Each structure stands twice: as C-alpha cells, then as structure tokens.
Computed example of a mutant assay.
Amino acid sequence: MTSSRQQIRQHIRQARNALSSDQQYQASIELISQVNSLPDMASAQAIALYIATDGELDTQPLIEALWHSGKKIYLPVIHPFAKGHLLFLEYAPSSELCYNRYGIIEPRLKKEAIIPVSELDIIFTPLVAFDKYGQRLGMGGGYYDRTLAPFQGHNHGPKAVGLAHDCQQVSSLPTESWDIPLQKIVTPSRLWQWES
C-alpha cells in the first residue's frame, strides 16, 4: 500500500527536523555552490527565495551570498485578497519582516516592493518531499502550484527550482491533477534535472 500524502509529509518533516544544527549549517553552505552551478543563475537578476521554517534547508546563507553578488531577492507573501495566492516582495537587509498566519516570516506588505511573478527569473520553492520524477509535495496549501500554473509548458516566465535536504527524496509521490512537477531540484549534494 502506498503512503498517503499526509503520512509522507509527517515522515519527511520528522526526518529533516532530526538534523543537527551542524548538519543544517553544513547543508546550507553546500547549497550555495550547488545553486551557483545552475546555468540560469549567471543571467538571473530577480530571484524568489523564502525564509526556512520547520526544519527546511536554511536559505539565509544563500540569500546573503546572492545579495553579495548583486542579485535582487524577493520573498513570498500571502496575498491579502486573492485567496490561496502569493505576492512576491523585494527583500533587502533593511526589510521589515513579520509573521504570517502560518507562523512563517515574510516581508511586511508594501505596494512599492511588489514584483509581478512574470518578472522573476527564478522561483526557488520550498517542498516537503520530492521524487525521482520531479514531483514536489508541499505543505498542502497549493500556493506554489497556483503561482506556477500560468507558466507551465511555456518558455517564458520564471524558472521554478525546488530546494530540499537530501533526506527529503522519496521513491515516488502520489500526485493530484493540480500538482506541477519541477524541472530542477537542488539539494546540498546534487542537482536533479528533468526534461519539460
């Protein structure tokens, strides 16, 4: 019998939360070189990331490295009016941050900091689990699936790249019709790629 999505979420969240602070730190440093090896990174200027929570791979060292190389970083914010959708706001060292309804850190909403999703070069997405086919299992809210859906199967718009610890890989995931597979997933040890 295959595991349900909820069972997989629970199992993988426990696995990544069991990583020691040294393992988390090492993974966050190794992630920087893996991300920098992506062919799309050289030309990318507007990059969406997120602030890690619940044992996710720590993105702060990567964010700081990208700031240092002159890239602009944007973070997701839950859309205040369009239910289930995300906005992306510029994140700078001076940005004011707050907690959203899920307890996740995001920038305080400011109209002038918003970038249209279509103008992002890369969206690095969080995920709970992934499989060898590029399927991504998130927390179940569907925010990233809705964000990426308009660009699926097109050559324009942002490239979506998943970020995960190596322990978040499973052999295969149960999927739903709305799930959007990723073409690339980066872990601290390697880059996974699939054809579109």
Rank of each mutant, 00 (worst) to 15 (best):
A65C: 09
W67C: 07
S69L: 06
G70S: 02
K71N: 03
K71L: 04
K71H: 05
I73Q: 01
Y74H: 05
Y74F: 13
L75Q: 06
P76D: 07
V77K: 13
V77I: 11
I78L: 15
H79Q: 08
K83D: 00
K83E: 07
K83I: 07
K83Y: 01
G84F: 02
G84R: 09
H85T: 01
H85R: 11
L86T: 00
L87C: 05
F88G: 00
F88A: 00
F88M: 02
L89I: 01
E90P: 01
Y91N: 14
A92T: 15
P93K: 09
S94G: 02
S94C: 11
S95M: 10
E96T: 09
L97Y: 03
L97F: 08
Y99P: 03
Y99S: 14
Y99H: 12
N100A: 15
N100C: 13
N100I: 11
R101Q: 14
Y102Q: 13
Y102T: 07
Y102K: 13
Y102A: 13
I104R: 11
I104A: 12
I105W: 03
I105S: 12
E106S: 09
P107N: 10
P107R: 09
P107F: 10
P107W: 11
P107L: 13
R108E: 15
L109M: 12
L109C: 07
K110T: 10
K110A: 14
I114H: 04
I115S: 02
P116H: 08
V117Q: 02
V117R: 01
S118T: 08
D121I: 07
D121E: 07
I122S: 14
I122F: 04
I123V: 15
I123C: 15
I123T: 05
F124Y: 07
F124C: 10
F124D: 03
T125N: 04
T125G: 02
P126Q: 01
L127K: 07
A129K: 09
A129S: 13
A129L: 15
A129R: 11
F130H: 11
K132H: 15
Y133N: 15
Y133P: 01
G134A: 13
G134M: 11
G134Q: 06
Q135L: 12
Q135T: 10
Q135D: 15
R136N: 06
L137K: 12
M139T: 00
M139E: 03
M139K: 05
G141F: 04
G141C: 05
G142C: 12
Y144H: 07
D145W: 05
R146E: 01
R146F: 01
T147P: 00
L148D: 02
L148K: 02
P150C: 12
P150F: 00
P150N: 07
F151S: 05
F151C: 05
F151A: 09
Q152H: 12
Q152F: 10
Q152E: 10
G153A: 12
H154Q: 12
H154N: 10
H154A: 07
N155Y: 06
N155V: 05
N155L: 14
A160L: 10
V161T: 08
L163W: 05
L163I: 08
A164P: 00
H165D: 08
D166F: 06
C167S: 14
Q169I: 13
